[in-house]
Design a protein around this nucleic acid. Structure first.
Length: 338
DNA sequence: TACGTCACGGTTGAC
DNA sequence: AGGTCAACCGTGACG
């Protein structure tokens, strides 16, 4: 909690907090600038973010359509869910001599698991050994009297929230399709992805119902990133505003640090490429409050474009990859600025 | 020079 | 309550 009031300063004079994601506002700026045609190296210098980071954020954005960081911490959901164990037990009862790999195949074939939540052979072995134990011995006679096992259901994956891109991403069943300008998240490669976790629900839901702005949706999305938030359907704090982990970000204003407004960085040349660390001091603490961040430097678009001012939250639709379509419209402005 | 990649030291959160 | 583990982070260096 009482973290160092300020983070560290990188070679470019930018402030960062080791181990923590850059604030969404910065991430967003990176993407926006890239969309405006500014080269990554220039973005890096202007925002004082390492080029590796810029590269990473842009690459992710290109890949996933999201500017948000991945889910930090937590554990992957176990694949050996009670349902899976139950099925394994059943298989073992029915065929005590069954091999773990055969069980694995059957779990897949029966739809108990899909390829993404299929336990490894060793996991199955462990289950057989630890959870089912000598079941195989009794199974023979028990299997006969055992209640007919319900046909394996196409699992509801216990971790359906973690379902993978292949099955969920584009437009998960039941999910409203995003309006064109809001389309996003094609894929999130990580099993811990927002998409996976949320099933995309919140993003669209919130977005569509609450606000057309990117910000709330994105924030919600981000809040969802946290594994803590898991029960996706119920995250009441849609904007994740009171999420602890959101807070840090919320406070991560680099304002004081001289982090420019869009105006200023768009007119990059005015910014010294290197900011002496001494100037870079504190942004009010990585742990300020959300409001602090919000009240931070509001960033105004260089033009009167559709971009809305944003602070901690991502308030601009630009963050959507699909918005690249608008790039052209915006471009002229920047072009002149540049 | 620009940029993709990766080791590193760090944080986080589920278990 | 506290430790472990595995995820993620951004930086900085290398090629």
């Amino acid at each position: 909690m009482e973290k160092p009031a300020f983070g560290e300063v990188n070679q470019l004079g930018g402030v960062f907090v080791n181990g923590r994601p850059l604030p969404n506002a910065i991430r967003l700026r990176i993407v926006e600038l890239a969309q405006l045609g500014i080269r990554p190296c220039d973005i890096s210098r202007q925002l004082r973010v390492s080029h590796g980071c810029v590269s990473k954020i842009l690459a992710r954005y290109n890949e996933t359509g999201s500017i948000l960081p991945g889910a930090i911490g937590g554990s992957k959901p176990r694949v050996t869910t009670p349902t899976v164990v139950k099925h394994i037990r059943t298989y073992k009862q029915r065929d005590p001599g069954i091999f773990a790999w055969e069980i694995r195949d059957r779990l897949l074939a029966d739809g108990v698991c899909d390829k993404f939540n299929l336990p490894s052979v060793s996991s199955i072995s462990r289950i057989l050994r630890n959870k089912i134990g000598n079941l195989s011995q009794q199974s023979q006679y028990e299997s006969g009297k055992q209640a007919p096992h319900p046909p394996p259901q196409p699992t509801i994956p216990y971790n359906h929230l973690y379902s993978y891109p292949t099955s969920k991403v584009p437009t998960p069943p039941g999910m409203p399709t995003l309006p064109g300008h809001m389309a996003m998240h094609r894929i999130w490669p990580s099993s811990h992805s927002v998409t996976d976790i949320l099933g995309i629900r919140s993003i669209t839901e919130q977005q569509i119902s609450d606000s057309p702005s990117f910000s709330s949706a994105k924030l919600e999305e981000w809040s969802a990133i946290n594994r803590t938030n898991f029960p996706p359907a119920s995250s009441p704090l849609v904007n994740g505003v009171d999420k602890p982990h959101l807070e840090p970000e919320a406070k991560y204003t680099q304002t004081l640090n001289g982090l420019p407004t869009v105006n200023s960085y768009v007119t990059a040349p005015s910014i010294p490429p290197y900011h002496p660390p001494t100037q870079v001091s504190p942004y009010m603490g990585y742990s300020a409050t959300t409001s602090a961040y919000v009240t931070g430097p509001t960033w105004q678009p260089a033009s009167g474009s559709a971009l809305s001012p944003h602070s901690c939250d991502i308030a601009t639709p630009l963050a959507f990859k699909s918005m690249t379509a608008n790039r052209d419209a915006i471009h002229p402005v920047t072009a002149s600025v540049l």
